[in-house]
């Protein structure tokens, strides 16, 4: 990606806004943008989702392949998460091999899903030592107006929860839903104008500083954390956003359950 120029006036303005407890798009500190979630939107994927947060739009697709289990883990299948942000999603995203930003996106979302254990790789075995399922989750950005992290993470878990193992196509049995034992949810906080806010839009990301991503499971268990970009934060600040994350992840999980 090309790093866009940060207009100096924007930073000063964001500081002024945060001082008055306001945000550039009129939201409050912990308020998320308008959210739309749909599943099973991609006919060729075995599970899929489209998530829209404000003007950020992403797709997630689940595909299954057969794999040979690793010799030291004969009863296990595999899970792979891959994120791609292509030039379609924004002016500053360039063609070519994945940028560090895109790679970080993919790996952070992957960890959140993987570490929660929501996909039990032991249950993906078909014939021990010979055949197992490999679950591949592909995350695809369509429009980047900030906070691709949360959009990807949400689309990913919705796609997994609505995925069907194509056993018939591979002639290993009857199709059945992919077992997903929990619903990890990611919440991202960005320091803008000196304080953390939830679900930053593009202008806030542009003029902001560091960001923190928190993935929590059904029981509020912490499954992954990541601090990105330059900046310093305190324990108090972290505690505040962790508290917010506990509430917000529950809200989002309810939405996922209701689909």
């Amino acid at each position: 990606m090309t790093i866009p120029i940060v207009p100096k006036l924007l930073r000063a303005h964001l500081s002024e806004l945060s001082g008055k407890n306001a945000r550039i798009d009129g939201r409050s500190q912990w308020e998320g943008r308008k959210l739309e979630v749909e599943h099973s939107v991609l006919p060729r994927a075995e599970g899929s989702a489209r998530v829209r947060m404000g003007d950020t739009i992403v797709l997630a697709g689940v595909k299954f392949q057969l794999m040979q289990p690793y010799p030291d883990r004969p009863n296990q299948g595999g899970l792979m998460c891959s994120a791609d942000v292509r030039p379609i999603a924004g002016r500053h995203w360039e063609a070519g091999p994945p940028s560090p930003e895109a790679i970080e996106l993919g790996r952070v979302v992957d960890r959140g899903i993987r570490e929660s254990g929501c996909i039990d790789v032991d249950s993906l075995c078909i014939i021990p030592g010979e055949k197992a399922w490999q679950v591949i989750l592909d995350l695809f950005a369509v429009s980047d107006d900030g906070n691709l992290f949360d959009a990807f993470a949400l689309a990913g878990i919705v796609a997994l929860r609505n995925a069907t193992l194509p056993a018939e196509r591979f002639e290993v049995g009857k199709d059945y839903p992919l077992p997903v034992s929990k619903t990890p949810i990611m919440c991202s906080y960005h320091k803008v104008g000196g304080r953390f806010v939830y679900d930053a839009c593009a202008r806030e990301e542009l003029g902001g500083d560091e960001r923190i991503h928190i993935t929590l499971g059904d029981d509020d268990n912490v499954h992954s954390l990541q601090k990105g970009l330059k900046g310093i934060f305190s324990t108090e600040e972290f505690t505040e956003i962790m508290t917010n994350a506990q509430g917000r992840t529950k809200e989002l999980r309810k939405i996922v359950d209701s689909l």
């Binding site: 991609l42 060729r44 994927a45 899929s48 797709l59 697709g61 689940v62 595909k63 392949q65 891959s82 791609d84 292509r86 030039p87 063609a95 591949i136 592909d138 695809f140 196509r169």
Partner: peptide, 16 residues
């Protein structure tokens, strides 16, 4: 102009 097929666009996954 860039034309690309997403990995989940085909029955057998397309490697990016």
């Amino acid at each position: 102009v860039a034309y690309n097929m997403a990995p989940f666009s085909t029955t057998d996954r397309m490697r990016p």
